[in-house]
C-alpha cells in the first residue's frame, strides 16, 4: 500500500527565547489522516512547537510546510485559512456570545449561511450541547467550555486539526466523550494532539512523539514508549 501524503512537516524548526532553546531543530512529519500525539514533561517544548505550527509564534529558524505551502511565520488566520482547525491550551472562546453563536462563527468561515446553520445544528446534536447552546459561554463550566471549543473545530469541517490539551480539566465522562470525538474526527482529518493525560492518549493514539528539552526524543507507539526506561525517566523524572 502506498504511503499517505505528508500534509504537515517542519524542517530544522527552532524557537529560542534569549538563551533558552524551547524548540531545537525539530524535523517532524504528519501524513494524511494520521493521528499524532505530542507528549513530554512540562517545559519540553510541545506547546511552543504547537504555537509555531499555528502561527502564534514566529520560529527563530527552520520551516513549517503545510501541504507543500511554506507557512513559516505566517499569521494564524493564514494557517487556519488553509482549512486547519485549531484548539488552544486554555479554552479560547467568545465569552460574551452564546455557544450557538460561537459554533456559527466557526462554521460560517467556510460555508454559506444555510450550510453553516445546518452544521451547527449537527454539531450541537453530535456533542450533546443542546442544553447549553443558548447559554453565554462565559457562564459555562470549564469542561463545557472545552466541549464548545471542540465543537467549533468540528463545525468547520477542517482537514487538519491541531488540538492543545483537549481533555484538560474534564471529568472522566467528558474525557471519554472527547476521546470518541477525536477518533471520529480522525476518520476524515489528520490530527496533532498535545496532551498530558496518559489514559486519554492510550485511548486515541497510534504514534506518539515524545518531546524532551525542545527536541524529539522518540517516536513510537504508546506501549513502546511507556516500556522504554529512558522515556519513563524523562516523563516521570525517576528511574523505574
Amino acid at each position: 500500500m502506498a504511503r499517505r501524503e505528508v500534509v504537515l512537516e517542519t524542517r530544522n524548526l527552532s524557537m529560542h527565547f534569549g538563551g533558552v532553546r524551547a524548540v531545537d531543530n525539530v524535523d517532524f512529519e504528519l501524513r494524511e489522516k494520521e493521528l499524532r500525539c505530542l507528549i513530554g514533561p512540562n517545559g519540553a517544548g510541545k506547546s511552543t512547537f504547537f504555537k509555531c505550527l499555528t502561527g502564534q509564534l514566529t520560529p527563530t529558524s527552520g520551516d513549517v510546510v503545510i501541504r507543500d505551502i511554506p507557512m513559516t511565520g505566517r499569521e494564524p488566520h493564514a494557517i487556519a485559512g488553509l482549512g486547519v482547525g485549531i484548539k488552544t491550551q486554555v479554552p479560547n472562546l467568545f465569552d460574551g456570545l452564546s455557544a450557538y453563536e460561537n459554533l456559527w462563527l466557526s462554521a460560517r468561515r467556510w460555508h454559506g449561511d444555510k450550510r453553516a446553520s445546518q452544521l451547527v445544528k449537527e454539531t450541537i446534536e453530535r456533542l450533546e450541547l443542546g442544553e447549553i447552546c443558548s447559554a453565554t459561554v462565559g457562564s459555562l463550566a470549564h469542561g463545557q467550555r472545552q466541549m464548545v471549543e471542540l465543537g467549533m473545530v468540528v463545525a468547520a469541517e477542517p482537514w487538519l486539526v491541531l488540538l492543545d490539551e483537549p481533555a484538560a480539566g474534564m471529568t472522566d465522562e467528558e474525557t471519554y466523550k472527547t476521546a470518541e470525538l477525536v477518533r471520529e474526527i480522525n476518520k476524515t482529518s489528520a490530527l496533532i494532539v498535545v496532551e498530558h493525560d496518559m489514559n486519554f492518549i492510550r485511548a486515541i493514539s497510534d504514534i506518539v512523539t515524545l518531546f524532551h528539552q525542545g527536541s524529539i526524543f522518540m517516536e513510537d507507539t504508546m506501549d513502546v514508549i511507556s516500556a522504554d526506561p529512558r522515556a519513563r525517566e524523562i516523563y516521570l523524572g525517576h528511574k523505574s
Binding site: 499555528t54 488566520h77 493564514a78 487556519a80 485549531i86 488552544t88
Partner: peptide
Amino acid sequence: RTELLGYD
C-alpha cells in the same frame, strides 16, 4: 480566537 478561526 477570531484570527484562529481563519478570519483576517
